[in-house]
Every structure is written in C-alpha cells, then in structure tokens.
C-alpha cells in the first residue's frame, strides 16, 4: 500500500502543491468580511483547505496523460491486491489534506505577518478537524462515483456538492434550532462532525472496494 501512496505523490503535479495561491482573492475578501464572526470564519477556512485538498486528490488520479483504464491496467499488473489500491486512495486523503493545510497555513502566515491582510484562524483545532472532515466527505462522495462511472461524472457531481456544502453550511449555521438531533450537532459540533464523517467515509470505502473488486480493465 505504501508504494501505491508513493506513486500518487510521484504523479502529482507540482502546481497542485501551490494551489492555495488560487484562493488568494478568497482569503483576502472573505477574511475581511467574516472577521469576528466566530465559528463562521473557522468554517470558511476549513472549506478553503478542504477545497485545495480535494483538488490535489482529484489531480492525483488523472494527470499523467494516460487513460483511467491504462492506469489501472498498469497498477493491477504490478504485485498489488485490489483492496490495497482502495486502501491507499482513502489513506491518501489525509496526506492531501495535510499538504493542503500546510500550504494554506504558510500562505495565511505570509498574508498575516507580511501584508497584515489576514484574519483566518490558521492554527485553530476546530478548523483543523472540520477541514479534514469536509475533505473526507468530498472524497467519500467522489471515489465510489469515480470508480463506477469515471472521473467526468465524479467531477460534475463533486462541484455541485462543494457548492451545496458552502451554501448549506452557512444556512445551517444561521438556523436557530433548539431541539432534536440537529441541536446535538450544534451542541457538540466537532464530535458530531467526526461521527458523521466516519460513517460516510466507511460506507464509501466499502462501496468503492466492492465496485473496484468487480471492475474489469
């Protein structure tokens, strides 16, 4: 599995590692608008990190000029088991998230200390957990669709999901819910987010595994 993870790092485009630069305008405008809004600004930062992590994850699947079929033919002709291909992909989500988090933090640090232009909470534990959870949720939706229908279908769906996330979370946070399961989510947001993510990621993992085991190349 480690070799498969290394393979993904090797085939990653160098530009993907400096992807947070694409979010420069977002950081500058949203940073000012959401200043002193508490959890909303942490959420906005988490979304930005998750977006970059997801971008890296998507890139790592198809950026070497070969088709998905040929890529899988090569990988499965090597001494690997099919399940380890899926394992590697799901573990790599954390690696891409870490890369995204580090590069976003570096960018934020430069903006804050050199240009005095940034107010996102870069070393906040909540943003750290939220960004990891959002990355895993996006990956959890992406992979089963990618393995079943190919990357085009997965990409279209995931862009929609990302916007739904961005607007939906804002809407959810503005709701005044005092009872039921939703209130528990608001009471323990970090724990709830982790439980929801773990459930979705596990379901997605087993689904991807089932699809990939049956797939023919």
């Amino acid at each position: 599995m480690f070799q498969l993870m290394l393979k993904d790092i090797y085939i990653q485009r160098k530009t993907a590692f400096i992807a947070p630069v694409f979010l420069l305008i977002y950081f500058l405008t949203m940073g000012r608008e959401l200043e002193n809004t508490g959890s909303l600004i942490a959420m906005a930062y988490s979304l930005a990190v998750a977006f970059i992590a997801f971008l890296m994850l998507v890139y790592s699947n198809f950026n070497t000029g070969e088709t998905e079929k040929m890529h899988n033919r090569l990988v499965l002709s090597l001494p690997v088991e099919r399940w380890s291909v899926i394992n590697a992909k799901y573990v790599m989500v954390s690696v891409w998230w870490l890369c995204a988090y580090i590069s976003c933090t570096i960018l934020a640090f430069i903006l804050k200390n050199v240009f005095h232009e940034f107010s996102f909470p870069t070393f906040d534990l909540n943003s750290l957990i939220f960004s990891l959870c959002i990355t895993y949720i996006l990956a959890a939706v992406f992979y089963p669709i990618y393995y079943k229908f190919g990357w085009k279908a997965a990409q279209i769906l995931i862009v929609g999901l990302f916007f739904l996330f961005s607007f939906g979370l804002g809407k959810l946070l503005s709701l005044d819910v005092k009872s039921g399961i939703i209130s528990m989510v608001f009471k323990y947001p970090v724990t709830s987010c982790m439980i929801i993510t773990l459930t979705i990621a596990l379901v997605s993992y087993f689904l991807s595994l089932r699809i990939y085991e049956k797939k023919e190349f």
Partner: peptide, 26 residues
C-alpha cells in the same frame, strides 16, 4: 509484463516511471 498499449505514465520521464514501479518488486 509487456503490453501493446501505453500503460506507463506518459507525462513522466523514463527514470521517474522506473522510480514509481521498482519499489513494487521485492
């Protein structure tokens, strides 16, 4: 294995392809 189709990483160099593939073999 040697296949007729281009299965290797087209956008990477020969050396980088070797560096990706070789760790898989004991």
């Amino acid at each position: 294995f040697v296949y007729d189709q281009d299965v290797f990483f087209e956008d990477l160099t020969v050396d980088k392809n070797k560096r990706i593939i070789s760790p898989f073999y004991e």
